[in-house]
Nucleic acid binder design. Sequence first.
DNA 1: CCTCTTTTTGGACGACTGTCCAGTTTTTCT
DNA 2: AGAAAAACTGGACAGTCGTCCAAAAAGAGG
Lengths: 208, 208
Amino acid sequence: MTTHKKAEAKRAFLIEQATACLAEKGYAHVSLRDIAKESGVSLGILHYYFASKEELLLAVISSYKGRFMEELEREVLAAPSGKWSAALARVLCRSLHEDRKLHRLWYDLQVQAMYVPAFGEQVKVIRSRLHQLISRMLVRLQREEQSTLTIDENSAISLIYSAIDGFLFQFLLDELQKPEDAIAHFEQAFAHLMHALFSSESLSPESR
Amino acid sequence: MTTHKKAEAKRAFLIEQATACLAEKGYAHVSLRDIAKESGVSLGILHYYFASKEELLLAVISSYKGRFMEELEREVLAAPSGKWSAALARVLCRSLHEDRKLHRLWYDLQVQAMYVPAFGEQVKVIRSRLHQLISRMLVRLQREEQSTLTIDENSAISLIYSAIDGFLFQFLLDELQKPEDAIAHFEQAFAHLMHALFSSESLSPESR
DNA sequence: CCTCTTTTTGGACGACTGTCCAGTTTTTCT
DNA sequence: AGAAAAACTGGACAGTCGTCCAAAAAGAGG
């Protein structure tokens, strides 16, 4: 069984290297030869561990996005009741600073998922997991503040999710052109966003 | 000069055909041969009218996005004072219904712009034009309602833009999986978004 | 030591890519 | 009409791509 473990470790290693390559050059411009060269292995190895390029990419998505979501869930769900948005801001800020290119890759793959059905499935799974995270926070918020939403919960979740996701997307686009001060304003701007979302009549509790 | 006009007309025709091809297959999977075949011309023609594939793609972006933004500006700026968000919703709903694949292409090219600097310039121009549209509406809103924003204008514009853009992006992703009822809920959901944005304390006028 | 399995290699294969150009056709102008 | 310019063709070119495989290397168990 030690051999089996070793094989899985190598598989994980290749996924990690492929992730780095993909994050650097993007889906449209990366090749298996790039990944093999960067990993210090021969081309054939990739087909030995992954049936096809598509399978490798799917493994990449679930690997790195899984790690990110675990951190997100851990940090955000552990935050004190009312201020989970602050915890969210902290995690996102750190992640955007350190793993900027991975976030770029995430949007790249989301777009590819609109063209390639196989990616669509994977993206769908991840998005619904993120929706669930928001849902849990929303439920907790209502319980602890003894309040209810004025619109149905699914609408609220979609709204919050799309606002946050769109905000990150715009941040990445901005940061591309002026890398220096974009991250500086991020936390403050994100606070504005959360405030705008939750101080509105639609989303905030009925009884304040 | 009639020859010059004819050449420009053909150029426009090729751009239009290329747009259709690109919208169908996406940036990563389209080739010049696809476009040539779909246009009913030979491969060499494309290099006769466009120096490179990149130049063709840039022409595609500014062409179709320019058309869309003209409609947007015309309809939204002509809307009665307070209810420009309704006009915006109407235009977006129609556009999402008819030109769904063009919107998908827009996100595709935005992502590519994060990797290819030449695209970045073009995307930047378009985004700033859309920002200006929001800015104009915001200024008009303040003047006609005799109010001021509680946060600086640029932050407000970025916030509104990213929220709307993120909303459209999520819509496209949703619609990919259940094409039937996604568009049905769009207008209502969009109304919720606008309400959430402008009934908040941050963005709404100080004096109601 | 030998044998069997797992792992790894480097190259071959056909298909595809953007670019380029020597010709051919069509149009335009005198 | 003929000549010059513009428009157009189809294929050649040099790459790159994902895939596949025969054979070599490494490891494991006896």
